[in-house]
C-alpha cells in the first residue's frame, strides 16, 4: 500500500501542438501541504484540471490511494474525495450562505418521493461550520455577495471539507486577498492539513506559499523543475526559480545536493 494520497506519474498533456505538461511527476501525502508554483502559462491549472477530472492525461498515470485511476469526469474525482476549489470558487453571490454551502448536495427530509430541502438543518450546519473557522455568520440566509473575499474562500474550502474531501486542491486562494484575509485563509488551510487532508496549493506568491507549505513543486513551461522539501530550499531559491533563473538555480541546487551526498 502506497503511503501517498495521490500520485502523478510522468503526466503529459497536449493541446494540439501546445505541450501544456511534459513528464510531470508529483506526489501528495496525507496531512501535507504541497505548493505548486510557477509563472503564468507554466501549466499549473492544466495540472490540477487533470487531477480533478476536467482533462484526461495524454501520457502517464494517476494513482489515488495506491490504485491506478482514470477520471471520466470531475464528479468521478469528487467521488474519490478529490475536491477542487477553483478561482471562481463556485459560489453564487445572490444566494444565501446556506444555499451555497449545500449547493448540489442539499440535505433532504420527508417521505421518499416527496422530499424537501431541510433548510433548518442546513442553516445549522452551515453556521456551525463557518463558526469553526471563526467566521460568525449572523444570518445564514444572508447572501454570499455580502461576504468578504476571504470569507468566501473559507466558505468554499469549508464546504469541500464538509463533503468529505481527502485531497483539497486550491487554485490561487489568496491571489485576490489582502494581507490579513490571506493569512486567515492560510491559517485555515494549515488547520485542514493538520486534520489529515492533503492539500495542493497553487499560487504565484512565494510569500504565501513558503510559510505554510511542506513541499514545493515548481513548474516551468510545462515541465517540473522538481519537488523540494522545505528544509532543502530557501524562500529566496524558490523565488529565483520562479522568477526566471530557474535553470540556473536548479543547477545550483543539484550541485549542492551532490556536494552534500559526497560529504556523507
Amino acid at each position: 500500500m502506497s503511503n501517498y494520497l495521490v500520485e502523478f506519474n510522468n503526466i503529459s498533456k497536449f493541446f494540439g501542438k501546445v505541450i501544456a505538461l511534459k513528464d510531470v511527476t508529483m506526489k501528495l501525502k496525507k496531512g501535507e501541504i504541497m505548493c505548486l508554483l510557477g509563472d503564468n502559462g507554466a501549466g499549473k491549472s492544466t495540472l490540477i484540471k487533470t487531477l480533478s477530472g476536467v482533462h484526461k492525461p495524454d501520457e502517464g498515470e494517476i494513482i489515488v490511494e495506491g490504485k491506478k485511476t482514470i477520471f471520466a469526469s470531475p464528479k468521478d474525482a469528487l467521488d474519490m474525495g478529490i475536491a477542487t476549489v477553483y478561482q471562481d470558487l463556485a459560489l453564487v453571490s445572490l444566494m444565501s450562505v446556506t444555499r451555497n454551502f449545500f449547493m448540489g448536495r442539499e440535505p433532504q427530509k420527508g417521505l421518499p418521493g416527496l422530499k424537501t430541502f431541510d433548510i433548518d438543518k442546513a442553516n445549522e450546519i452551515a453556521s456551525e461550520r463557518m463558526g469553526q473557522i471563526g467566521i460568525d455568520v449572523r444570518d445564514p440566509s444572508q447572501a454570499v455577495g455580502t461576504m468578504s473575499g476571504g470569507e468566501r474562500q473559507c466558505l468554499a474550502i469549508s464546504r469541500a471539507i464538509y463533503f468529505g474531501a481527502k485531497v483539497l486542491i486550491l487554485d490561487e486562494p489568496t491571489s485576490a486577498l489582502g494581507v490579513h484575509q490571506a493569512s486567515v485563509v492560510l491559517k485555515y488551510i494549515v488547520k485542514a492539513a493538520s486534520q489529515g487532508l492533503g492539500v495542493i496549493l497553487i499560487t504565484h506568491n512565494v510569500h504565501h506559499a513558503y510559510p505554510v507549505g511542506n513541499r514545493f513543486t515548481v513548474l516551468n513551461r510545462g515541465k517540473s523543475l522538481g519537488t523540494y522539501s522545505k528544509k532543502d530550499i530557501s524562500r529566496e531559491k524558490l523565488l529565483s526559480m520562479m522568477a526566471g533563473g530557474e535553470e540556473l538555480s536548479k543547477l545550483e541546487v543539484e550541485l549542492k545536493e551532490m556536494d552534500r551526498i559526497s560529504k556523507i
Binding site: A90, V92, M103
Partner: peptide, 14 residues
C-alpha cells in the same frame, strides 16, 4: 437558483 446565478459554479459542485 444556482443554475441561474452561476451555471459554471453550479456545475462544478455537481
Amino acid at each position: 437558483f444556482a443554475s441561474g446565478g452561476d451555471k459554471h459554479g453550479a456545475r462544478n459542485v455537481g
